[in-house]
Nucleic acid binder design. Structure first.
Lengths: 338, 338
DNA sequence: CTGAAAGCGCTTACAG
DNA sequence: CTGAAAGCGCTTACAG
């Protein structure tokens, strides 16, 4: 099967290459009869313009990059999907890059720069050095971050409203009558965790519950550590009757700690998580948790990127967008014990 | 920042564009002093050859497509990752396409064909019409399938060894003393389910346990239906003491059915699943299940694709590769009740 | 409304 | 070992 080119179509339709090109690109200045004729020939011969040739001629790249973290992360699927759903309505294609936990963004960025293929990139962010990303940005490749964990940067980003999410979760616990509420926190350096912690503290304060620093152990999101910290906490005579875990996996650890102490969830200890990863509907008891709008976050990031790379829109401000969360009440929370 | 091209480098290094090109492409026939000089200039000016220009000139596309299904599928992340891990060691980039459950492959394939960008494509397969994929293949775009669900096709594919996996799972149950073992089967039209069912039957026969057709209800992988079927089965006086579920989600349903009947897992009913999706380590009791080597499956598919699109290798046979599974014994299986 | 021509940034025979 | 030239398949002023 010979490759059919614009020259073939031109010849077959009895017009010039220029005209065929104008038709392909929907230029208004083509006679409608001519256009129909050209389109007919195009269809008849299954002609497909070469994307590389047109990219070269136009000087515009039809690709946006997407950097996704490795296996560990349960939320990447829906974020991916959100990004894809908006990109697939545009002429852009997504080039997929993966970054693993154990290495720096460096190599991926190098590769992106080396191929020079991406008009922009959305990165599903991980706890890695942001520096290479800034380099990218400065090399003229706009980047937008999703679900930012890093802190020290000035890049557009979209994330869940961590403060409101946490606030609502703790409010839920307070409404159930809990007063001794622990906060099983993530790394203090993560802005998302800072926000979640503020949400926790403000909700407590607003309810007139005094803050007790011993009720905020930091597990750094390490399940074994979380389990141990929680087990300690549950050993105290004045133990908490509820815990707000800063992510679901940590919440699982809290439930295990309760089991270690022979405590029942939710009768003796209420547990609420954050993220709503898929397994949280399956654990026993099913986890009450704050659901992040991952798919919408991906879609929003894609939209922001498109807005900055579309011709005309120069150097937008580095907006940080916060999307609302939803509290999913399941079986791991209940009334405070009498 | 002006875009630096091969012409700039040539001028700066005092050589011709041809020579620069030869250096870039690691041709042997360049004087080593010249090569060093050129490389120095390249580095100094941060020169990056335009991928589109070189693709155009070479007539070879540096992309391989990857079609992944929508949100529903827990195994796509590791498969993705396996594909990416091998592709990232090649000059190819991955273009990501998504297909959702509720629609046909048709539109994605059209898009791929329209962009004409992919030198080949690996598709993480779903229960969809295979026809468009065959079209793709016939349009000269090689495709390899991962984790095939469809049946009626003749495309290279890689999947887990479903027969051996099932056989081993049932063998495990037999070793624990079980004789009344149910098989909670998926759709009879899926080749993977046929293989799993054969593995189940052969293991039983080999142990001299007569087959009882009533012990193989078909749930079509619908959890509510699986739960109901299982509940019925557990209502019989001669109820099974173990069940081999054809996937993990169905296994969860079986555990719920046991709970519905006031039966304990594993004391009264042993449950083994298939897939080992992430949540299976978290459910209570943790699920014994057959782990599929998803990452390796992705890697293998990528290798097969590369082999067929690499220059020279024409029209390989449509191989079907089966990769070994691993039985993960956790807490949902135990000795048969006395 | 349409065509001839130059150009996008590389690569690849072909000479030398 | 190196260079001049033609070509990959499009697009885009520029004329007409």
């Amino acid at each position: 099967m010979e490759k059919v080119t614009i020259r073939d179509i031109a010849r077959l339709a009895g017009v010039s290459k220029s005209t065929v090109s104008l038709v392909i690109n929907n230029s208004a200045r083509v006679d409608s009869a001519t256009r129909r004729r050209v389109l007919a020939v195009i269809r008849e011969h299954n002609y497909v313009p070469s994307a590389t040739a047109s990219a070269l001629a136009k000087g515009r790249l039809p690709f946006i990059g997407m950097i996704v973290p490795g296996l560990t992360w349960r939320m990447v699927a829906p974020i991916n999907f959100g990004v894809a759903s908006v990109i697939e309505r545009t002429p852009y294609e997504i080039i997929l890059y993966t970054s693993t936990n154990d290495r720096d963004y460096g190599p991926v960025i190098e590769r992106m720069l080396a191929s020079g293929l991406s008009a922009g990139v959305v990165v599903i962010s991980q706890d890695q050095a942001m520096k290479p990303l800034l380099d990218l940005h400065e090399h003229g490749v706009p980047v937008v971050l999703v679900n930012t964990l890093g802190s020290d940067f000035d890049l557009p980003s979209v994330e869940a409203d961590n403060y409101e999410g946490a606030h609502g979760a703790v409010r839920h616990l307070l409404d159930l009558g809990h007063r001794r509420i622990a906060s099983l926190a993530g790394p203090a350096t993560y802005p998302c965790c800072q926000d979640r912690q503020r949400g926790y503290e403000d909700a407590l304060s607003e309810a007139g519950v005094p803050l007790d620093p011993t009720l905020t152990p930091r597990s750094e999101f390490e399940p074994p550590k979380a389990r141990e910290l929680m087990r300690d906490l549950l050993g105290h005579p004045d133990r908490p009757t509820a815990v707000f875990a800063h992510n679901d996996v940590t919440a699982y650890a809290a439930m295990e700690a309760a089991a270690d102490r022979g405590l029942r969830v939710p009768e003796d200890l209420s547990v609420v998580g954050f993220d709503d990863i898929p397994s949280s509907a399956h654990v026993k008891p099913a986890l009450t948790t704050v659901s992040q709008p991952f798919e919408e976050m991906g879609a929003q990031a894609a939209r922001m990127l498109l807005a900055t790379i579309s011709p005309g829109a120069e150097g937008q401000a580095a907006a940080r967008v916060h999307l609302p969360t939803t509290l999913i009440v399941r079986d791991s929370t209940g009334p405070a014990p009498a």
